[in-house]
Design a binder for these strands. Sequence first.
DNA 1: ACTCTATTTCGGTATTTTCCTAAATACCGA
DNA 2: TCGGTATTTAGGAAAATACCGAAATAGAGT
Lengths: 92, 92
Amino acid sequence: MSDVFDALAHPVRRKVLKLLRKRAMSAGELAEKFDLAKPTLSGHFAVLKAADLVRTERRGTTILYRLNMSVLEEAAASLMDLAGVSAKEQKP
Amino acid sequence: MSDVFDALAHPVRRKVLKLLRKRAMSAGELAEKFDLAKPTLSGHFAVLKAADLVRTERRGTTILYRLNMSVLEEAAASLMDLAGVSAKEQKP
DNA sequence: ACTCTATTTCGGTATTTTCCTAAATACCGA
DNA sequence: TCGGTATTTAGGAAAATACCGAAATAGAGT
């Protein structure tokens, strides 16, 4: 879970997740949305992947990145838990 | 919101929040729970405070730290939102 | 005013993160 | 197999973060 919060700490990575929320995108397509070199983005993708926040799929010469919502939901639940809410049911 | 995710990225700070979930504690009382120097913990407290995840209250010579749950809830909601769930209602 | 306790600020070092350019790898189509 | 496009890996510089001991600040009691 620590990997997840590490990954979420950087604004660029949060924006990547936001972009992937609409639809899966290739690395290059994602990179176009940022003013950063492609290797830099590639590094951010690797962090997201290590946290299992995104999954990849080769499509010929490109690589598709897809959001893994379940991990995001787990992270949200863990925060609700920290806040003292059971996250599953509102009335324990 | 970036401050919040930055603050949540460090395991020590997450543990502080977890401890404060039960009850408000003084800086020294919190520091006892960790194998770190007090100035180090003080720095972590400052990060949590900057994110408004904790609030402080002077009690004579000691300083009480108290969890601010609403910010945690907002962070959780923002994650649920990223995951595509509206966080307020399950069926939009 | 002095002292004791609690906490933070200061100054500095070690580690980690972020970012870049250049080079390597992977796949496809001619 | 060769050339082109997409992406990652390698190597390294700059900035941010984490940590510590020493010193400074703040309040309470004497």
